[in-house]
Design a binder for these strands. Structure first.
Lengths: 232, 232
DNA sequence: CGAGCAGTTGACAACTATCAAGATTGGTGG
DNA sequence: CCACCAATCTTGATAGTTGTCAACTGCTCG
């Protein structure tokens, strides 16, 4: 993706309410453009918190502690703004699931510019709160759900984001590997594989190739995920 | 806590950069004052997202799905601003750990007022991002840590917030029950009890009464929690 | 078409939940 | 001030779910 398109995309999404072209120039002035290929880690010093705008592609935000275990904290897609904290109790890094183009900002510089424009601050607020809510949902998943429930929940979440298909059923493409799914759900790849297998046996889904899944019965999946009835 | 003091506290914390007394009046105009006693659920309709400012006390934010299992998503204390989403895949409620006084806002009204003052928006941004980062840490805990690690991590987190004591050791008061700890860590009360027992046996902590814990060796606890070395 | 990696399946072990007693705690009332 | 009571917490035995290790299968891409 061209830097110019990246800038336009950023302006359309984050600065949408601001017609000021000068603002965009200022933001681009403190941004670093980064491209990353499949499974490539985005190089970030972790001294300072960052904001990353995803102009194109899909990414995972990964945390790891002392031992080798990794936890995917969130997936982020085109037009998302990702907040990455400095290294603390755990270290975070951003990694591309597919070819990505993004803008990297130091958080304090970014906020210094944003402070001048209430519309931008409002946008950041809105996105931060949405991210917080999604993160809480993940917390519930990891704290109180079985492997089966996590898997069902995960499929429904992907379906909601980019699924296509008729009512009640849905075909979807998983841009991430089994390992990524496992690291996101706090499981192992073997367990993920087994859960998918059992959902297949039950006739709730079927798969073709590594990354295509068909959901046959969304209502049953919701029940398997232990979610509240749909009227909420 | 008197409504007047509650208002002052809110102004000092959330409106701190704004000397405008009129702003406070406007916020109080859309707020509902709520008091709650120990283990009392804060009555909120869950039709609309809310903001709650905790003027006094300690609270837990709890989620539950279809089945009875509950997950404490976060603890919130004096001067915190809590964002509560509308009922969706899971239902959330706020519950007092001790006597509490708070201000409840409908989120859209709150944001409408905040939009007028960049300083307030900035404060909300800052707090939302901090909440997001804490939530991510919890995600890591629940996704990739053993019961022992969660327990150690939890004790360290409480110590960081309100611990008092000499360097290397620390005495702290747990305002929440074993059940609350379990619901926060995604464990059962029995497991929490056992983990505390084993930490005691190892000589890393000792307890007196139900809610007082002494941390003897913070460095070892950090190691037990599988956190990165302290230079971060 | 074949090499190599991603994914699947199986056997077993480990950790945590569950179920069931007991033991403390802290408050209440005599 | 002490004894007692109910709730909370601890401890023990057992079972279930998921992790671990290992072998095997089947995609993809050169």
């Amino acid at each position: 993706m061209e830097t110019r398109d990246l800038g336009r995309r950023f302006a359309d999404n984050i600065l949408s309410e601001v017609s000021d072209l000068d603002a965009l120039a200022q933001f681009l002035g403190i941004a670093r453009t980064v491209h990353a290929g499949r499974n490539e880690r985005v190089r970030l010093d972790d001294e300072w918190p960052k904001f990353v705008f995803i102009g194109k592609g899909a990414t995972k935000l990964v945390a790891h502690a002392s031992s080798g275990r990794e936890q995917i904290v969130a997936f982020h897609f085109q037009d998302d703004l990702v907040s990455i904290p400095a290294r603390g109790s755990h270290a975070y890094y951003l990694c591309a699931l597919e070819d990505c183009s993004m803008l990297v900002f130091k958080a304090h510089k970014f906020m210094a510019l944003a402070d001048k424009q209430p519309e931008i601050l409002g946008e950041i607020c809105k996105r931060s709160l949405a991210a917080l809510w999604r993160c809480r949902e993940k917390t519930i998943q990891l704290g109180r759900k079985t492997a089966r429930e996590r898997m069902a929940n995960f499929l429904l979440a992907v379906a909601e984001r980019n699924g296509s298909g008729a009512k009640g059923s849905c075909e979807l493409h998983l841009p991430m590997s089994r390992r990524d799914i496992a690291d996101s759900l706090g499981l192992t790849i073997e367990t993920v594989s087994r859960q998918l297998g059992e959902l297949k046996t039950e006739g709730l889904i079927c798969t073709s190739g590594r990354s295509t899944v068909n959901l046959h019965d969304i209502q049953s999946l919701r029940a398997r995920a232990d979610l509240l009835p749909d009227t909420g």
